[in-house]
Structure formats: C-alpha cells, structure tokens
Design a protein around this nucleic acid. Structure first.
Lengths: 350, 350
DNA sequence: ATGAAAGCGCTAACAT
DNA sequence: ATGTTAGCGCTTTCAT
C-alpha cells in the first residue's frame, strides 16, 4: 500500500506538489485553474499528471475553512415523501451540480423543533445558503427561535430564501398562490358548478392561507356561497376524511394540494360517487401523483422544478464576486385540465 | 454590531476563551465535555456562560479537519420521489440525529454517472460513511468506476453499506428478497390462483432479479407455468403498460414494487376489470401509496425505516473508538393483506 | 488545573 | 514564473 504525507491514507496537495517537484502554492494554482496567475505550461502539465496519477481530489473541508465558502446549500423540506418537495429539490440540484455545490436536503417533518435543528446543523457546517421549501409553519415563538439559528448564517454572508411559500423577512421565489387558487376556482365556476367545497391545508402554513383566500375571493366574486371549507391538513388521510364528509353534498371540490385530492378521490369513490360525472375535483400542485390517479386529476401546476432552479441561480448570483441582490420573484403557473373535472349536468341528466 | 476575532462575523472559540479569560485549550475542553480532563467547576461555568452569551457554536468544518471525522453520512437514493427510499432515509436520519451526524441525501436518478458524482462529492467532503439505498444498477464498467471513487473513502476508514439491495463487496442490511417474493407468490397461489403474472423491475437491478427468482421458485414449486413475466421498470408508467397488456388474461398479478402495482391497478380499472373480483393484485414494498390506493393494496412490507436505522447504528458502531465490524444482516418482512387480493372464484360465480 | 504550540489541508498575500 | 509564509478554527500532545 502506498503511503502519503505523514498522517493520511489519501493523497494531499503536498503529495501532488512533491510528485511534480513544485511548491504547494504552484500545485494549488494549477489545480484551481487560477487564470490570473501565470504558470509555465510544462509545470502545469507535470502537476496535472501528478494529480491524475495519484488520483488526487482536494479536501472540500480544508478549502472551505480558508475560503469561507463551503459550497454547501441546504434545502429544508416539510415532508421528504411528498413529491411536491422532491421536485423543488431536483431543480435546486440541477443548478447546484453545475456550480459544484453540494446540496443537503433536510427533512423537517413540519416540526419547528426539527427545522431548527436542521438550520443549526447547516450553520455548523457553514452552509452558504439555506432554502426553505414550502413555507412557514409553527407559531411566532418558533419563528423567533428559528431566526436566532439562522442569524449567524446571514452574518457570515450566507443566503436564505423562501421557496414556494412565505417566510417573514426572506426573499421568496414563488407563484402567486392566491391568484392561482382564484383562477382554479373560477375554472370550476365556469364549468357551471355552484356548490363548491374547498379542502384546505393547515392554517398555520402560509400557502394554505393564501390558497384559501384565493378560493374565497373567486367564490365571492361570483356571488356564490362558500359553505364547505374543510381542513385536510395537506395529507392524504385529511383529504380522505374531508372527502367522506363532503360526499353527496357538493358538485365540485378544490383541494389545496394533490395529496388531499387523492384522499378525497378515494373517499368519493368509496361513497359510490363518480368523478367527474357526479363530482368535479381539482387540485393544487401538479405532482406526478395527480397525473397518475384514475381519473387523472385536473390540477394547477406549480413550476416547482423551475422554482428550485431559479432559486439556486439566485443563490449563485448572490454568492458571486460581484454579488447580485436577490429580489423576490413570482413565477407563472398553469392549469392542466385532465379527467377529473367536467361541466355541470342538469339534474335529470345525471 | 459586535465584532469578534479578527476576520469573522460570528463568534469563534477564541472569543469564548477571551470572554471567559481562559486559554483556547480550556475552552475547547469544556465545550467538548472532555471528561478525562479535570477542569475547575468555576472555570467550566465561566466558559459555558461565555459560550451561551455569545451564542457560540463550533465550526464543524474546522473540527472535522483536525479530528478526521466529518460526522457526515451520505445516503444515495435511486429516486428521491419514491417513498420507498424516503423511508429508508427517515430511519437513517432518526439515528443520525441522536448521534449528531449530518445526513446528506443524494439523488442519483438511477444514473451511474450521477451516482459517481455523488460519491465523489461525498468523498471530497470527507463523509464518514456512504449508504447505498436500493441496490446496484449499471454495468460492470460503471461498477468499477464507482469503486474507484469510493476507494478513498474506505482508505480513510470510512464505511460503505448496501441498504435494501446488493452492492458487490459491501455488507448489506436487507431482507431476503427472493424468499419474500416467493412467499408473496405462495400467498396468491394459496388463494387458488393459477394464471399469475409477474411485473418485474429493471433486470440490471439486483433486487429486481432476486424478486423475480422468488416468484419463479414459488410457481415452479406449485407446478404452475410462469408464462406472464413483464418488465415494468420499477415505474408507474411501466406498471401501467404491463397491466394494460395483461388485462383479461390472468387471474392474479405480483408487482415487484408498489409503484408498478399502482400503474397496473390503473390499467386494470381502465380496462373495466375489478380488483380483486376479476384480478388479484399484490405488490412488493409497502409504501404508504399502497395503503392509500383504492382498493388498498396487499403488499409485502419491507421494513425500510428499520433498515435505515439498523444501518446507521452499524455505522456508528464501526466508527466508534472500539470499532465493531459490520456484518450483513437480513431483517424480517411481513405480508400485509388488504383489499386487492381475494380467493379465486369459480368461473360461473364471476 | 491550565496553557503553549503544533498542525489538520488548503488558499492567498507577499516576496523573489 | 515560482516559492515562502501566514493563517482559517479547531483539537491535541506536551509542558508547567
């Protein structure tokens, strides 16, 4: 077994330097492709050859320690199982990969304490940016505690961003949830439905409140009563329960996310109702699960992958030598009509 | 704004030491709770107080550099959207959290090149352990290249483990996929079914091959012909396609994962067949999606969370001062019977 | 019981 | 064009 510099079993830059018979500095310069510094072509070649033959790869830890940049970005997600978040992460990763950033996904289980721990861990590892996917939850006290953990990251020049959901004080990359929910509701109204229910998310979550507001606005605007507002907790089971209690009383349902819509769908079917013949069902999100349901769900598609990508781009800009200040931005959404919604049929045609 | 040690905007151990009027060494000892070293109670209190009032938290990077342990463990998953992997990750995280380890989830999209990049990134950040969730894919060449990236991690005393799937040369925490598939098949046979189809995963994936082998063994043992073997690629759409082509020709289907079962279910329903009245459907995995389907799916539940937890425990043991060598272990699985399977009805009763 | 000093692996002034 | 040196923030011998 080869041995390297004193204490390590893996090649270090000093090994490369030695093998190439240059100083560590020169090796570092070549390896980092520093263009502002002149290095003789022959020297450069020797260093590169040495690095390759030793299979050298620099320690990101040591580098981070001196450069003050870890090239780590953390993404906090409320529920790792929910494809909603997975696609945001995907967008972040795609951009991060190109920029040689390491993405750390932290699952908070929508628990403020866990979220705090995650932020603390990212802070300890000197993450350059923290992206909060999926908006605020927890009370004010939790918000303050979180802020305290986050503060050192910002103090070091780190970035914090809100993705697809509000975070007080942070720039947001998002869609207009209220407008979007209103538009989805209007679509159902345009189909002729009048008795429309809304299955919402947890009221502590900002997106849940925004979507509800949009629904209410659209109903009011059409002069329709909003008599069926339920809390489905953003979960399948919550949607199931809501759907069960709604069965037979409404003509259409807007669910504030796909998971709840799936739950409602299961409930309706169990109750012997046909979708969309008896009840139209539309949801918010646009995850693959919505497309895979039977019938496939009409949903408002949030450009989650794009949100992730745009956010990561913004992070890179803000971390660049000439920092670009990050401004909140609203991205466009689209309604995809599938099989779960249909025009209202006259009573006798059903 | 307060200022701290020369170059940082965040308190460092030297700031704590200064505030407590002790040396850095003493501060470090107190902060790390080194029990082998005697520190006067009064001193300890001063250090602790200083750390608290400064809101000090040590740099994991600097610590890792000197201790040669990053307290980072990477988990490689084939598909971040698949709840199958998410639950493994959950198990890992639960244990890692207690031990103050940072878990980095890397999404490989089942692409060997991405997988290699992920291992390289983890190596560069000096991950102490790399857990491969979900088994091997890619050809031999890819395996060799991966091995090359992984080697330095092992050389540093790092751990690599295979979770719920084979990886040549690595200890595995798993169930016996072959035995499990056989048992699930036997259950269907016991229900009286004879024309049983198998929707399998990609043959490059070790678990897919193992599950198929189990199916074939059970069929052979019962003297039944295994005439309907399809590749569903472990995806919903693959299951959908397979289900479509199977509709009307078999009495029962075993799907090698839940996603494909969901696809098959959609296909059967579209074809006008009832599950389980016309076709019994059982799957492998036991993700929440299986429970949430209508009808709820009978599945073989792989203890994924437990696999993750056991693996992380093993990692901790292997990394402890008195290292415990990691041996492969097989965990117990269970078959959960739900609504998607039923006894065969005589022809005229259908 | 406490501290001084070396050094982890790397980059970045600052020489030459 | 290349090398010397001084850290980054921490732990850890080794002194005292």
């Amino acid at each position: 077994m080869k041995t390297f510099s004193s204490r390590s079993d893996v090649p270090r830059i000093v090994d490369v330097a030695r093998a190439a018979r240059v100083s560590i500095t020169t090796a570092s310069r070549v390896l980092n492709g520093v263009t502002t510094y002149p290095v003789a072509a022959a020297t450069r070649e020797r260093v590169l050859a040495a690095a390759r033959s030793l299979n050298y790869s620099p320690s990101a830890l040591a580098r981070a320690l001196v450069t003050k940049r870890s090239r780590i970005v953390g993404v906090l997600v409320g529920d790792i199982v929910d494809p909603y978040f997975a696609e945001i992460v995907r967008g972040v990763e795609a951009v991060a990969r190109q920029a040689e950033y390491l993405v750390i996904v932290c699952n908070t289980e929508r628990d403020p304490a866990l979220e705090r721990r995650a932020v603390a861990a990212l802070r300890d590892y000197s993450a350059d940016a923290i992206l909060f996917a999926g908006g605020d939850f927890g009370d004010e006290e939790a918000g303050r505690l979180l802020q305290a953990e986050l503060e050192p990251v910002l103090a070091r020049g780190g970035i914090a961003l809100a993705l697809a959901g509000d975070r007080p004080g942070l720039p947001a990359i998002d869609i207009d949830h209220t407008a979007a929910a209103a538009e989805l509701t209007r679509y159902l109204i345009g189909l002729g439905h009048q008795r429309i229910a809304f299955i919402g998310g947890p009221p502590q979550v900002s997106t849940a409140r925004a979507r509800l507001a949009g629904f209410l606005a659209a109903m009011a605007e059409a002069g329709l009563p909003a008599n069926w507002i339920l809390d489905g907790g953003y979960s399948f089971s919550g949607g199931l329960a809501a759907g069960t209690s709604l069965a037979g009383t409404v003509e259409a349902i807007v669910a504030a996310n796909d998971q709840m819509a799936l739950g409602a769908l299961a409930a309706l079917r169990t109750a012997g109702l046909r979708v969309p013949a008896d009840v139209s069902l539309a949801s918010f999100g646009g995850t693959s699960a919505a497309a895979q349901a039977v019938p496939a769900l009409t949903t408002l598609v949030i450009p989650r992958e794009q949100i992730g990508a745009v956010a990561m781009q913004a992070v890179l800009g803000a971390l660049a030598p000439q920092p670009v200040v990050i401004a909140s931005q609203l991205l466009p959404y689209t309604i995809v009509v599938r099989e779960s919604t249909a025009p209202r049929l006259p009573e006798d045609a059903r």
